[in-house]
């Protein structure tokens, strides 16, 4: 409980320690604290920005997807249309080919019938002549009646 010179020694120590702290301890710690606060603030800002970017990117991706879907649908409908068109073309071509074939066949058949008719006519004429010959062997002169016969042949 006694007072003595320790008082002043302690007083001096007090100021020395305080000065030392002010000079060597306080500034680096405060600097680190401030820097870290800055870093954390930057980090938070970056996180916010990343979040916004993500939302933006998601929106963009959705839009792209929609675009792709749309263009795919468009493509498909185009293809379908084209296929239908091709089918139609093929169908008309086929019809044309069939009708042409039919026409050709008909024409050929006509020609053949004509030829058969001609042949038949000639044979009938020959038959008729032969018949007539048999009947009229004596009276009819083939040369003299040739005109009559050819007229008859054309009438058949």
């Amino acid at each position: 409980m006694n007072l003595n010179a320790t008082l002043f020694a302690q007083l001096a120590v007090f100021f020395v320690l305080a000065w030392f702290t002010m000079r060597f301890v306080w500034p680096p710690i405060m600097k680190a604290l401030d820097e870290r606060a800055g870093k954390i603030a930057d980090g938070l800002a970056a996180a916010d920005k990343a979040k916004a970017d993500l939302v933006h990117a998601e929106k963009k991706a959705a839009e792209e997807l929609r675009h792709a879907r749309e263009s795919a649908a468009e493509f498909r409908s185009g293809a379908e249309k084209q296929a239908a068109q091709l089918l139609e073309e093929a169908r008309t071509e086929a019809a044309r080919v069939i009708s042409a074939a039919r026409d050709a066949a008909q024409a050929e058949a006509g020609v053949a019938a004509q030829r058969a008719k001609e042949a038949l006519r000639e044979q009938v004429a020959l038959l008729a002549v032969a018949g007539a010959e048999k009947i009229l062997r004596k009276e009819i002169n083939p040369q003299a009646h040739a005109e009559l016969l050819s007229q008859l042949k054309s009438e058949l």
Binding site: N2, L3, N4, T6, Q10, V13
Partner: peptide, 18 residues
């Protein structure tokens, strides 16, 4: 220390530990 206040005396232990 005998007197209540004596500026000639210094407490070596207090000083050392502080």
């Amino acid at each position: 220390q005998a007197a209540i206040i004596d500026w000639t005396i210094i407490n070596v232990d207090t000083l050392f530990w502080s």
